[in-house]
């Protein structure tokens, strides 16, 4: 069981937010690709790059939220 958990961590990483974010980013890109016109060939890569950057930022957002709540609880004390 522990080895399976470690394997999952190796493939999907330590958080669920990053693999979910990557899945959603690729899903959105695939959807736009289906409905978009010729502009997708030139601009699609930058859209996917932006979505991947957003996925990374959201996965790191938890750390920023934790810092913010740490700061708030420290101020209350």
């Amino acid at each position: 069981m522990k080895t399976l958990r470690q394997l999952r961590k190796l493939v999907l990483g330590e958080t669920w937010s990053l693999p979910l974010g990557i899945g959603i980013a690729l899903g959105i890109a695939a959807l736009i690709h289906e409905v978009a016109g010729e502009w997708w060939e030139q601009a699609g890569g930058f859209i996917l790059l932006g979505l991947a950057a957003l996925a990374l930022s959201i996965s790191l957002g938890g750390v920023l939220i934790a810092h913010a709540s740490q700061g708030r609880s420290a101020r209350r004390r």
Binding site: E41, G44, G45
Partner: peptide
């Protein structure tokens, strides 16, 4: 991934 989705960089 972008190339697979039809992008020409």
């Amino acid at each position: 991934a972008a190339e697979g989705l039809g992008v020409e960089w």
